[in-house]
Nucleic acid binder design. Structure first.
Length: 127
DNA sequence: CTTCTTACA
DNA sequence: TGTAAGAA
């Protein structure tokens, strides 16, 4: 299938699909006319990419462990590839550190302004 | 009409 | 991400 078809079937824009390829996450073949050609397996692959991205893994890491993951859509499970679990645990640790950092920042703010009764109503320019 | 690449904001 | 240009 061509890029627009994969985009429709995965809910991921064609632009993002090309971006994934540029990041080494997808390796579609090329038709004689230069168009990208994807097969059914790429549908699941895109799902895996989205799941790993949601887990906070950087695309560089995903590119390396993607072939070690299997399952359909978001329902993926790591295969016995050396390093996959290590990467996932590393990300877990990184998140813990980030949480600790945010809690620290919040405590500092608590010291400056007590409760936070007046939250700003809107933040986006597009209201 | 669909896709491709490159590039700017 | 949106969008534009020029080419196949």
């Amino acid at each position: 299938m061509r890029i627009s078809a994969l985009a429709r079937r995965t809910g991921v824009s064609d632009r993002l699909l090309r971006y994934y390829e540029a990041q080494g996450l997808l390796r579609p073949t090329r038709l004689p006319n230069g168009y990208r050609e994807y097969d059914e397996s790429h549908i699941a692959t895109v799902g895996h990419i989205r799941t790993l991205l949601a887990a906070g893994l950087p695309t560089a890491v995903i590119a390396q462990i993607l072939h070690c993951v299997h399952g359909d859509g978001d329902q993926l499970f790591p295969a016995p590839c050396p390093g996959v679990l290590a990467h996932l645990r590393r990300e877990h640790t990184r998140i813990d550190a980030a949480i600790a950092q945010l809690q620290s920042s919040r405590q500092a703010l608590d010291g400056l302004v007590g409760g936070v009764p007046g939250q700003s109503p809107d933040r986006s320019p597009a209201g």
